[in-house]
């Protein structure tokens, strides 16, 4: 079961997700240690396998650094649910095989610490804590396939 970490913030940017002072490496384990550090220094310690980040508008704005996605993946984040995403981050996430869910008013539908389960293809978030289902528009099939294959390059290789 995934736990939700809710940040009632818009424009959570790539400098907060992985500060540039750590961009001198692309080692995922190293990046993971500093995931979300400038927003919540405790994050890497409290995130368990498959946990989900919930945020407001424009998540991932700023730099094109894919390191932001790798840091989240390295920290074992299962998905980010946000009201909206910045363009480059969104594309990078799919390219890396990382789930991103657009959900209107996400921060008010899921509370910090809620236990949730996500059916990505059906577009349903089961909020076990609140005892209710939340519907979202699933990613298009081609994006889901890329994610299931583990990213764009793996997807291309598989379908070559």
């Amino acid at each position: 079961m995934a736990k939700a970490h809710v940040y009632k913030r818009d424009h959570i940017n790539t400098d907060e997700i992985i500060p540039a002072r750590y961009l001198n490496t692309d080692d995922v384990d190293e990046l993971a240690k500093h995931c979300m550090e400038d927003l919540d220094a405790e994050f890497a310690g409290k995130c368990s396998h498959g946990d989900v980040i919930v945020a407001g508008d424009d998540f991932g704005c700023g730099s094109s650094r894919e390191h932001a996605v790798w840091a989240l993946q390295g920290a074992k984040v299962g998905a980010v649910i946000a009201q909206s995403f910045a363009r480059i981050f969104y594309r990078n996430a799919i390219n890396c095989g990382f789930y991103v869910i657009e959900l209107e008013d996400a921060v008010n539908k899921i509370a910090d610490g809620d236990e949730i389960e996500i059916d990505y293809a059906a577009g349903v978030i089961k909020n076990k804590t609140a005892g209710k289902d939340i519907n979202f528009t699933p990613l298009p099939d081609f994006a889901l396939e890329i994610i299931r294959d583990g990213g764009l390059l793996e997807h291309i290789k598989k379908n070559r």
């Binding site: 730099s63 094109s64 894919e66 480059i88 990078n92 390219n95 890396c96 390059l153």
Partner: peptide, 26 residues
């Protein structure tokens, strides 16, 4: 370009945009 400020080059009537590393590889 593998940098978000790649949009700079649009000052010369070109289409120019930033991408991440996977797109860059492609």
């Amino acid at each position: 370009g593998g940098d978000s400020h790649t949009c700079t080059y649009g000052a010369f009537a070109a289409f120019s945009t930033g991408i991440g590393s996977t797109d860059l590889a492609a």
